[in-house]
Structures are given as C-alpha cells and as structure tokens.
Design a protein around this nucleic acid. Sequence first.
DNA 1: ATTCTTGCAAACCCTTTGCAAGCTA
DNA 2: TAGCTTGCAAAGGGTTTGCAAGAAT
Lengths: 140, 140
Amino acid sequence: MNAESVHTSRGRSTRQGNAVAAALAETDAFTSAQDLHARLRRNGESVGLTTVYRHLQVLVDRGEVDMLRRTDGETLYRRCATSAHHHHLVCRVCGRTVEIAGPEIEAWTTRVAAAEGFSDVSHQVEIYGRCAGCAAAGRA
Amino acid sequence: MNAESVHTSRGRSTRQGNAVAAALAETDAFTSAQDLHARLRRNGESVGLTTVYRHLQVLVDRGEVDMLRRTDGETLYRRCATSAHHHHLVCRVCGRTVEIAGPEIEAWTTRVAAAEGFSDVSHQVEIYGRCAGCAAAGRA
DNA sequence: ATTCTTGCAAACCCTTTGCAAGCTA
DNA sequence: TAGCTTGCAAAGGGTTTGCAAGAAT
C-alpha cells in the first residue's frame, strides 16, 4: 500500500469511513450495502445505513470498489485487487468472487460491435455459478 | 407465426393484452414499461401501467420477451426473434438492438468457470455502444 | 354466471436527500 | 472555529399488490 492510496482524495478520516473500508476489505464476496450495514452493527461498529451508502459511493467513484446490480435490483459492492478492467465469476450462493481477465472477450465485443457499425463500445460481462465450497456443502 | 404462438398458454384475449404485445412488436429497441405505457396512451390505447407490467411479466415468463436491467434500475423489455440463447448489442442512445450469437463466449465462460471449480454456470453478457444512425445524427 | 383481467391507490424495497447536530483538522 | 460528516426521518423512483369493478368465455 503506497502513500497515496491511504488518502487518494480529500475527505476526513472518520471512524465510520474506516469501518466501512475495513468491512469491505474483510470479504471476498460481493456484498450489499444493507448486508454491510448489518455486519458492522453485529460487530459493534455503529454506523448509519445512510453513511454506509455514502462511503460506498465514494469508494466506487475512486475506483477502489467494484459495483454490480443483482437481478432483483440490489446493488452489490466488492473491493477488487485490480483497478484494471476485469470481469467477475460470482458464486450465486455465497457471493464469493474471482476476478477474471478475458482478452478474448474484449476482442470479441469490439469485433462484433464494429461489424454492426456501433462505436463507443463498452460491455458488461459477469459469470455466475456455484463455487466448489458451496457445491461440496450442498448449499442451494 | 404458427397456431400455438397466438396463445401459448391460458389467458383470455383482451384489448390491453393485445395492445401491449403489439406495441412490443412495433419496435426493435429495448423499452421500459413506462415508455411502453406512454406510447400506448399517445396512440390512444388506454392501458393502465399496472396492466402493462403484468403483461410484460407474462411474456417474459413465456420466453417471448427478453428483459434486461439498466444501470439506473429500470427494466427494459424487447421482443426478440429467437428464443434461443443469445446476447445483445444495444445502442445506448436510442435502444436499437441487434441480437448476437457468441459461440466463443459460451465456450469461454464454461472454461473459465470450470477452471475455478464453479458449476451450474450461467452468464450475462451485453454490449453497449452508439449505433451508426445515432452517430451520423450526432446524437448523444 | 363464473372466473379472469383491469386499474386505482397504497404498499414495497432499495437508495438518496434535507437538515440539524457532531466531529475533524 | 470552519466546514465536512453523520444519521434520522422523509422523499424518490420503479415495480408490485390489494381489492372492487369490469370483461371474456
């Protein structure tokens, strides 16, 4: 962790902000704001739900946290190792996630879009499945 | 259109149901329930918003309509030509959409997931861009 | 006549905002 | 002290549900 990552941008250091960042750092799974909030409270860290949302937003804006939307509308957050472009392989049971690099996908999307005359292309790719742990435990 | 597609499952034929189906058939673009509702009203077809949602849900359940969620939470619907598995290349300006088949993507996701020990794999892949028409017109 | 469908209003659920009180620097 | 941060309560926004009135068969 280099010097500038501690404080990438302005913002005071607060108990709540640190708690949210710490809670995110603790897990490998994509987590909802509400879950994070519940977890903090269980651990005795009293932080308002609103505040959790606000810190998550800041972290996302800074590129320190990835965000994705579940089919039911809930937004999930996760602290990823790379800030570089990547995709996710997410366990739909426990949320555990593996970061995936897919050069061939990048090439494919670009090619397909160009073939249809589309420009300013971006894409959204996520893989869902059941991780080995959940399968072994017979979960869901 | 074969005989069974007219009435794939039970359900009465109503003015509203037909209107929703017709409105969907009219366009190539992914459309929100609210937009569809507004369009119907503009065309003099009075249909309640609730009813629009209900018919869309039925069509999705039947596999006659594809559904995707926008980043802001809105759900978009589109009548696709194939009911077979496919992806979409969506114009983020006008919504116009091209159906894409991606055998290599299917293989890639399967391979990546297997390598990480995941089973029951599914994926979600959408490409966004600006279509030639919107680019030419200088839209957004 | 019976049962499904409609649609208004209210409920839902997650997320965001208003604003006064609390902290950080 | 100055001004960012917090958090409660309330508002927002899309979608769903309760229920009585209205169609379709």
